[in-house]
Write a protein that binds this DNA or RNA. Sequence first.
DNA 1: TGAGGGCATAAGCTGGTCTTATGAGCGAGG
DNA 2: CCTCGCTCATAAGACCAGCTTATGCCCTCA
Lengths: 305, 305
Amino acid sequence: MSEAEEQRTASLAHRVPDLAALELLLAVARLGSLGAAAREVGITQPAASSRIRSMERQLGVALVDRSPRGSRLTDAGALVTDWARRVVEAAAAFDAGARALRDQRDSRLRVAASMTIAEYLLPGWLLALHAERPDTAVSLLAGNSAKVAELLLAGDADLGFVEGLSVPPGLDSAVIAHDRLIVVTAPDHAWARRRRPLTAAELAATPLILRERGSGTRQVLDAALGGLARPMIELSSTTAVKASAVSGAGPSVLSELAVGEELSMRRLVSIPVEGVSLHRDLRAVWPTGHRPTGPARELLSLTRG
Amino acid sequence: MSEAEEQRTASLAHRVPDLAALELLLAVARLGSLGAAAREVGITQPAASSRIRSMERQLGVALVDRSPRGSRLTDAGALVTDWARRVVEAAAAFDAGARALRDQRDSRLRVAASMTIAEYLLPGWLLALHAERPDTAVSLLAGNSAKVAELLLAGDADLGFVEGLSVPPGLDSAVIAHDRLIVVTAPDHAWARRRRPLTAAELAATPLILRERGSGTRQVLDAALGGLARPMIELSSTTAVKASAVSGAGPSVLSELAVGEELSMRRLVSIPVEGVSLHRDLRAVWPTGHRPTGPARELLSLTRG
DNA sequence: TGAGGGCATAAGCTGGTCTTATGAGCGAGG
DNA sequence: CCTCGCTCATAAGACCAGCTTATGCCCTCA
């Protein structure tokens, strides 16, 4: 295997510095000194120096200009730092979610959420909540709408989030955001070159890659098309549906929350549709009469925009 | 320091599994077996078993159900895997950018781009290009519009991307995307509770946190307001401006590309404005007469949507 | 002209993580 | 019915990366 091939094959982890190094780089960017950054992240100055140096060796790019008066980022370093920030932010969202998942028992705020919301929205909200109320421990239970309702009514959760068409009985709700299902295909699909929007009839007549019946996404689509959606393949996870669509197996209908990344990288393209309403409300829910208070109220207010 | 405090204080890197572990988890999710995932990432099965186990210990959550016939994700595991995927995607963008930055000399496609585009859009495009043409090595040079023009005219770059109001002389261009400047404040700013859009006059009358004069963002704002923008503070990087706005120092005007993350986490909120056009075109540019061919043409086609 | 902050280098230790080797559970097929 | 093949878990040992401590040099500022 040539060196170039080996580089191409090696996993990301071998080519991307670890999180500690990225955090250190952000600290250097902010503080303007290796030593100060070292103190902030709790290591010694030589360790920081070595870490930054090995990161530069790994990337093949000089990141900081060292001088006896401090260190400043190079132009390349400024770019790398911005990309690093996004990795660190994704890691922070991961951490916020994982933390909520861990604190199943004894936390002060227990949230139950449907999958799509738990996946794409909750980590951001939890980070925001953590910024305002660092001492609030939040636990997360994920499930479908019925499960969320059950947890709330049994007193096992304080606040719920659902994405269905209707509000389960016994619960009050508030719309906190809107989601939209969009038709997507691989960029080389014939639909990607259409000049006119797809009609509802065309969509209903075409076999689609879909989530299984009963999923929130499928419910909305079936309702919008009058129960007529034709499945080409039915898959049980959003991720599997996306992968199938990206590979060119056919058109799919997915939440816009789920495909932001794919659209911006053009692994998928969005196909305009006319004559059919694919909007759905995302709602916060709570047992009728038990208006959210304390941390639940705080979280709720963070989600409204 | 109590254990809880220590946990809260410890850096992300101590609480988030490293990239190799996250990639392994994605492989397990996709392949349904620890052993198969181990083979795919090039380690032995016991190493994979141990890695997953230590990740579960670290997160305090069971991620996979092991059985003699394979391993499936638990519900919590499915969520964690989705969050992990976002971290890995950010790392892939980091890698694509860093790779382009490294290949300064001898690569087949040399791209020059202004900072905003290099920061927020190019890594995604490079990933898409890499997916279609894995053998194309791309190099990236970042600078302002004048620098991009200079590199193109000197033959030191094959394709450029600029975000200014005008196209530098000697270059042809194509609009590839649109950007919009938006007014943002911290969520607790009075403007966040307005019911009516801001007027141009109000915006012009208010001291703002801004990039320095000469930056692309500032040019567009000054032009839109007729050169009237009142700076409260002038900072030299988008990141510094964002940090200042998040901390509540005052309202700011930034590219929507730069504040997506902050908006979705509600560290900033967007304030509607009326009576002023803050749109700007993002353009691909090349020396007049030298229409992009080969990989440059390919990259260009990827950016059009 | 010292004092202090900034960075680099060297030496030694520590700890995590890999590999190899092995065992045990479950299912399919000769 | 028994064995093969797949799964995962455990144990023991090797290895390597990264940290700390202890220096030294450079530059600036008082």
